[in-house]
Each structure stands twice: as structure tokens, then as C-alpha cells.
Design a protein around this nucleic acid. Structure first.
Lengths: 334, 334
DNA sequence: CTGCTTCATGACAGCGCTTGCAGGCTAGAA
DNA sequence: TTCTAGCCTGCAAGCGCTGTCATGAAGCAG
């Protein structure tokens, strides 16, 4: 910056003011400084300005991993919104126990970002407390947190509508499949199941434990095993509601392996509206991950700027049932 | 840090030395300082140390977007490797022309990260020059850059093997589909096509322009149009080689719409080995995005630390043909 | 012409750390 | 005991910016 000042024949203060767009700089000076900055390809050292202002110009995002479509899509929605706000994106992907302990022990986000967005991350009470003590704006995404701004969809309501769709088609034995994963999506999982069960109750159908299944090793052979168990029940389900589209895809593959026609013998429904769902013809409950990301950024900006006001806002985004090829009335005999 | 120093009854210098693990601190002092730091949940202000050391503890990644499986998976491979190195991950997703101009104009990565990883990002000569002038370590991922460390697969060789596979099955009319996108994957695209053509030449098959197709609006209706054009040729292809699995999925969906059996009437091959490919039974050329990410980080670390040595290394990762259900010999009549 | 205001600019302190240097302390050698 | 050699530790000078305050120039009313 000193170089720019020298080249433009002004003081560093003036360069600073110019580059930050403050109004107290004359037109002629501003032009000279900008020219000099451009000629020298000057880029500000954020560390230095952060040190003074306390603002880092960065936002941290905490996610359980980066592998699922949903999380990528959320991130993808955030990126342009952050760019528009002049904020950089710092990503913390915290997956295993070790990483997790380390993250909450060292709190790397502290004073290293202006806000922390927590996305689909099931926190223990201790972890939650740790974040609260961080003394920085927190925004929860795809999960809700009492007392903190959050953006999410109403998973329970959505699942309720999903199951109603199956009921309306005539299904009476509907299985619900969830992942046995500990990490991550606990919120959604619980709420979706709750919605499903509520729909069954509404319809006067008795709950059957055999029809709620946690699939271990769902990325491996677990799904085939789950399908085997379900179809060997005395009264097998005619419809399968998978907690996420990712899970539904594996389910479809397993059914295909087993030569079980969809929706001829069983209907399948997912949740998310993954990019591939349209291609696969999967009936699902659509939520917009990108919109979730954008909204989260909007909320973040207002929290950073206001220091209150929206600080407690909870925004619930809509979901939509998208009927496709994988759901149909149950087979005649069932 | 002053607080910690006060609580531990030592000077800030000593706290600094302790926290950085320098050996010139006595055991007893170290213990006291660490206890104090823990009690106060002290987390260092990186801005301040960056200002002194010139190191930010951050690595920037430049990507054309965050939406494709491939880029997410690469990022996903980088994250744990960076964490192990104690580096934070800064993501710049630069998609449209405006963002692009802005990025190269403002050079936000400059002095804001210790290295810049450029992933699948087709640079204009001016942009490349701009990055070279940045004066920071550059690592190219999934693309090669003369004079700079790079990690990538040999797209040409891989595509060559892919096409050979189709030839070996008996196909003679093989179409190659690529996206008409300008942004992004230019490198791979060109090289994969080159490999495909080389295999044809090897086999003594004359090149036919009609069989190389750039699909505009491939996420929309473009694919159906492309399929229509190919199948209305006087001598339609019996095999379709899609530049990426993402493209192949759309292709499969379009063929399904059109009631064209795969591989009964046409064979389909992709490139990448997307997570969904196994589920879809898509024959493809597997490359490990995660390994690409990990390797890139390894390279980055060595470049940051050495200031030379590995600075010019090019690492070529292996690819592997994974034959699945979508490829078979051409139909008898063809 | 004087005195006051307004506006543009420069000087300078300091943000929270790191690091070279000086100094105090202990221990062993003379 | 005195001296030297290590160890640890504290002091203080910045790193590159921002923001407050002071300064000078220019404009204007009286």
C-alpha cells in the first residue's frame, strides 16, 4: 500500500480511504490512486485490515462432509451469494470423531471468520455450548437451533405429505428406511420419520416396528440385506419411503438386482430432489438446497451487520411433492 | 494472548512460543501456559500472526463451480488432507463471466492464502499470466500447466482405451458426445476427444464429423435433440462415448425416453466413475477425484515448504476401464 | 480583509502477534 | 569463590493496515 501511495503521490491514509470507497476523497486523487493500484496489481493484505477492524471478510461453513449432493448443492447456493457480499468462503468439513474433537478443541473458526454457518451438523450439547461461547454470529442451516437464526424445511410436514401420497395411492404397508449413520443428519432423520408415522396414525394404520429400518452400511451391501429382510416379512410392504434420495437410489439398485419391479411390485419414494432424481424418475419431496444456501447467506449478512434484529429469525423453506415413475398403486393382489 | 500470559504469569512472548510448540520453553512453564490457554478457550488471531509471518495457514481453491460430482469429490479429497496439514480451505467458485473478471481483477487470493489450487479451470493466457504474477505457489489440479506443479490423469490415453473397448466389442460407428460449455473443463474435453480419435485411426476407421457432437443445453432438452440427430443419420452409431458420466446419465435418460434399449441397440460409455455409475451399471473410465485432491494437497505442501524442488513436478494418476452393463457387442444387423 | 466553516489530506498510534536480542539464572569448571 | 556457558524468559520493534485528530486550503458571509 505504501508503494501505491508513493506512486500516486499521496499518503497511505488516502490510499486506504480510496480503496475502501470512502466519500472523503476528491475525484482527481481517487483516479490517481486507482490507476496506481491497478498498475501495481495491488491487492490488500486482509490480515492487516482484519487486525484493525476485527472483520475478516470471511464466513466459515461447518459441514459433516462434502460428499453428499445435498451439502454440495447447499454450498453451491452459498458461493455466489457470499461473493456478492464480498465475503470469502472458508469450509470446515468435519467428519470423524478425531476431526470433531479437534475442531471443537481448537475452535479454528474463532476470530478467523465473521460468522459460522452450521449445516446439517448434529451437535452434542457440549459442542453447542462451545459454539455459543464462540462469541461470533452463528447461523444454522438445514437444522433449527433454539435462539439462533436458522433456515430449514419442515421435514416432518413434508414427510407427512409424502406418506399421504402413498396412502392415497392405496398403500397400507409402507416401510421407512433411514441410514444408520451417527454423524450428521440427525435432525432431518428424526423429523421425517415423525412425519411419516403421523401420516400413518392419521390414516388409522397401526405402527409396525418391522417397517422402520435403519440401514447399516447403506453404501455397501447393507441395502441388499435390508431389502431381503423387508421382502421376507409375512406381510411385506408395498411401498418404501427412503429418508433421502441418495438412499433411494441404492434402494432402487438393490431392487433391480433382486428383480423386483418398481413400481410394479413396490413403490419407492425419496426425499431431496437430487439432480439425478428426475433422470431416474424417482418420486420425491423436493427441497431446494441452493435456496437454502442463498437464504442462509442473506440471514448471515443481516446478523453480521445488525448485531441483532434478525438474530433470532427462523426461516422455513417450502418443500414440494414431485410424483414421478417410481410410485403407483400397489399391485392388485396386495 | 495477553490474558493467557497474565493468567499463566508469563510474558506474551512465552505464550507465543509455547503455543507454537517451540522447544525453548521449560516443561513447567509450558504446562502452566497450556492450562491457562485451555481455561480461557484461547484461540489465536490468525490475522495477527499472518501479518508477522506472512503465512496465512490457508489454501485457496479455484473452481469453475461446485455443482458437479467430480469437483465436489475432489474438494472432498482435499479437505482431510488439508486439515492434517493444519491448513484451512478457502473456496473460490468462479462461474460466470462477471465473477471471472472480478476474480482476476481483484485477485482476492493474493496474500490471503499460502497457495492457490486451480482445479479444472480453463484459463485464458491473460488469466494465466495474472496468476503467475501473483507471486504465490500455484498447483494445477485435473489439468496440466507447463512450468507448474500439476496433478491430472492422462485423459487422452484413457479415452483411447475406452474407445478401444468399444472397438473390441465390434463397434465401428462410435459417436463422441461432449458438452458445449465454454467454462471449465476445456483441457479434459479436448484430450479425451483426441484419444478417442486416435483409437479410431489406430483401427483404420475413417473420421466422421457427424459422430462428434457438442451438446448445447445438455442439462435441458439438448440431449434429446442430440440423440435424435444421431439416430437419424444414414448410418447411426451403435455406441456412444460421453465425455463425462454426468453427460452419460442424461444420455441414458434420453435414450430411455426414446425407448432405445441400452445396450441392446446402442452401447453407452462414460468417463469419471461418478458414485451413481455403479448403481446405473454405466461402463466408464474411472479416475479417483478424491485421490486427485489428496495428491494435490501433498504437492501443495511440498511447494509451500520447499520453495522449489517439487515445484515443477507433474503427477499423472491412473485411470481404469470399468466395464458394466451399458456396453455390449452391437446388434446383429448393424 | 477577517473569521468561521467545510473539505481533503497527512501524521501517528495501535490492532495482536512474532522474533531478534539482551539479560537473569543455574550449573559446572577453574 | 569466580567465571563461563547454557537455558529460559522478557523487552521491544515492527508486520500492513485503519481511524482519530490535526492541518492547511478554499469558500463565504460580514
Amino acid at each position: 500500500m505504501a508503494d501505491v501511495a508513493h506512486r500516486a503521490g499521496v499518503s497511505v491514509s488516502t490510499v486506504s480511504r480510496t480503496l475502501r470507497g470512502l466519500p472523503t476523497v476528491s475525484e482527481t486523487t481517487r483516479a490517481r490512486v486507482e490507476a496506481a493500484a491497478r498498475e501495481l496489481s495491488f491487492a490488500i493484505t486482509r490480515s492487516a485490515s482484519s487486525l484493525v477492524t476485527g472483520r475478516t471478510g470471511r464466513v466459515a461453513v461447518l459441514m459433516p462432509h462434502l460428499e453428499s449432493w445435498f451439502l454440495s448443492a447447499t454450498l453451491s447456493g452459498m458461493a455466489p451469494a457470499l461473493r456478492d457480499a464480498g465475503l470469502d468462503l472458508l469450509v470446515y468439513s468435519v467428519t470423524d470423531v478425531q476431526e470433531r474433537a479437534d475442531f471443537f478443541d481448537r475452535l479454528p473458526a474463532r476470530r478467523n471468520a465473521d460468522a459460522l454457518l452450521v449445516v446439517s451438523f448434529a451437535l452434542s450439547p457440549a459442542e453447542r455450548a462451545r459454539l455459543d461461547d464462540l462469541g461470533m454470529p452463528l447461523v444454522f442451516v438445514s437444522q433449527h437451533a433454539p435462539g439462533r437464526p436458522s433456515v430449514y424445511v419442515d421435514d416432518e410436514e413434508a414427510a407427512l405429505r409424502g406418506t399421504r401420497h402413498l396412502l392415497n395411492l392405496g398403500h397400507r404397508r409402507i416401510a421407512f428406511l433411514q441410514t444408520a449413520d451417527e454423524t450428521g443428519f440427525a435432525w432431518s432423520s428424526k423429523n421425517r420419520l415423525a412425519g411419516h408415522l403421523r401420516a400413518l396414525t392419521e390414516a388409522g394404520i397401526e405402527h409396525d416396528d418391522d417397517l422402520v429400518m435403519s440401514v447399516a452400511d447403506w453404501k455397501g451391501s447393507g441395502m441388499a440385506a435390508a431389502v431381503g429382510r423387508l421382502l421376507s416379512l409375512q406381510a411385506p410392504p408395498t411401498a418404501l419411503f427412503a429418508e433421502t434420495d441418495d438412499l433411494a437410489f441404492r434402494l432402487l439398485a438393490a431392487l433391480r438386482e433382486a428383480n423386483i419391479p418398481v413400481p410394479g411390485r413396490v413403490s419407492v419414494m425419496g426425499f431431496d430432489d437430487h439432480v439425478m432424481s428426475a433422470l431416474m424418475g424417482l418420486t420425491t419431496l423436493a427441497q431446494s438446497a441452493a435456496e437454502l444456501g442463498r437464504t442462509a447467506v442473506r440471514l448471515t449478512r443481516s446478523v453480521i451487520d445488525d448485531t441483532d434484529g434478525d438474530a433470532q429469525r427462523h426461516i422455513v423453506l417450502p418443500t414440494e411433492l414431485v410424483p414421478r415413475r417410481t410410485t403407483a398403486p400397489p399391485p392388485a393382489g396386495a
